[in-house]
């Protein structure tokens, strides 16, 4: 089998802070095949955004320090020079950020901002870039694209701005699109529009997507494979249906159990929500054992002392837990 599009191996992104080293990402490995959608889920501070920023080398060094390897189409991105990296950003790998309100430049027209990547990477003229910008706006479903390319971000609503962000990201036909919480700032009806758009575009454009999110509902809607992160580590990875049906790691089980299910009043499943007690541990101390041990209902001495390795518990399903529960039932 050919090598996957993106292979991240033992990624470690550490930040030097006045009171010690913050191990934001600590030994994360995963891969993304061409045309595949992989979701990285976890709560705030688990390192999912830092992982995505590290792939594009958007982490300021120092205070940050990225180690490990990130192979994109066989090239290690961490070994490239800054000009080489610049020719990849926005061209072969592009990114959609969470805040559609702040990630567009308020003093440039929409057309200029979409055209910028095209002129830079593909050497189009201003006129060609504008035509292509109109084409991209049509693709992402913005009405009256001819008029809209001349408008400024403040003239658009939040949902429209996120569509423009997607248009910018897709302008150069990237092979990989990193979407960092692309719908978190949007209302549900607008979120549904954007998710539908992303699914359609994936079919037509064929780019692989790394989706960073904390919303398991969104994961279930668009992802094919899921990586669950906790405290800078990957704790579980599985195909999406498998992960939701038979979560193996106690953290994943806890996450799924703590979410109220829509429709609970109809199915009579209104039970008390499962809580994950306690707090995410500080990333500034090295944790010798399992990172989840302090909050895990099944933790034993072994968990506190020895960090569990990622083991394959079922085909394509890995989890880092000494007791990786065999039964798939969500712990009540």
């Amino acid at each position: 089998m050919a090598e996957p599009l993106l292979v991240v191996e033992n990624l470690q992104t550490h930040f030097r802070t006045p009171d010690g080293i913050n191990r934001a990402v600590d030994g994360v490995s995963f891969h993304v095949n061409a045309g595949e959608t992989v979701a990285i889920v976890g709560e705030s501070g688990c390192g999912k955004s830092v992982t995505s920023m590290s792939i594009l080398r958007l982490i300021p060094e120092p205070p940050g320090k990225i180690a490990g390897s990130i192979r994109f189409q066989g090239r290690d991105l961490l070994k490239l020079s800054e000009p080489e990296m610049r020719s990849i950003r926005g061209n072969e790998i592009s990114m959609i950020f969470q805040e559609p309100m702040t990630s567009l430049n308020p003093v440039l027209t929409i057309g200029r901002q979409i055209g910028e990547t095209l002129r830079l990477h593909q050497g189009l003229s201003a006129k060609q870039a504008e035509d292509k910008a109109v084409e991209m706006l049509t693709l992402v479903g913005i009405p009256e694209p001819r008029r809209r390319v001349r408008e400024y971000p403040h003239q658009l609503s939040g949902g429209m701005r996120q569509r423009v962000m997607i248009a910018i990201a897709l302008a150069c036909n990237p092979k990989l699109l990193i979407a960092d919480e692309p719908t978190t700032a949007l209302d549900v009806t607008i979120q549904a529009q954007i998710l539908a758009l992303m699914r359609d575009l994936k079919r037509t454009v064929g780019a692989a997507i790394v989706l960073i999110t904390h919303d398991l509902g969104v994961v279930a809607e668009v992802a094919e494979r899921v990586v669950v992160m906790y405290a800078g580590k990957k704790v579980e990875e599985a195909p999406v249906v498998e992960l939701f049906n038979t979560p193996r790691h106690p953290y994943t089980q806890g996450l799924l159990g703590s979410m109220p299910k829509l429709g609970s009043s109809l199915t009579g499943t209104e039970t008390r929500l499962a809580e994950i007690p306690g707090l995410v541990p500080s990333l500034k101390q090295k944790i010798p054992g399992c990172v989840f041990a302090s909050r895990c209902p099944h933790a034993t001495d072994l968990c506190v002392k020895v960090a569990p390795a990622l083991e394959e518990k079922a085909p394509g399903h890995v989890a880092a837990c000494h007791y990786a529960l065999k039964e798939g039932a969500i712990a009540a």
């Binding site: 549900v188 979120q191 549904a192 398991l216 509902g217 279930a220 939701f244 829509l262």
Partner: peptide, 13 residues
């Protein structure tokens, strides 16, 4: 009705 149908639910497939 539209609001209810727009909420992503954690049930893939």
């Amino acid at each position: 009705e539209a609001l209810l149908s727009a909420v992503p639910v954690p049930m893939p497939g």
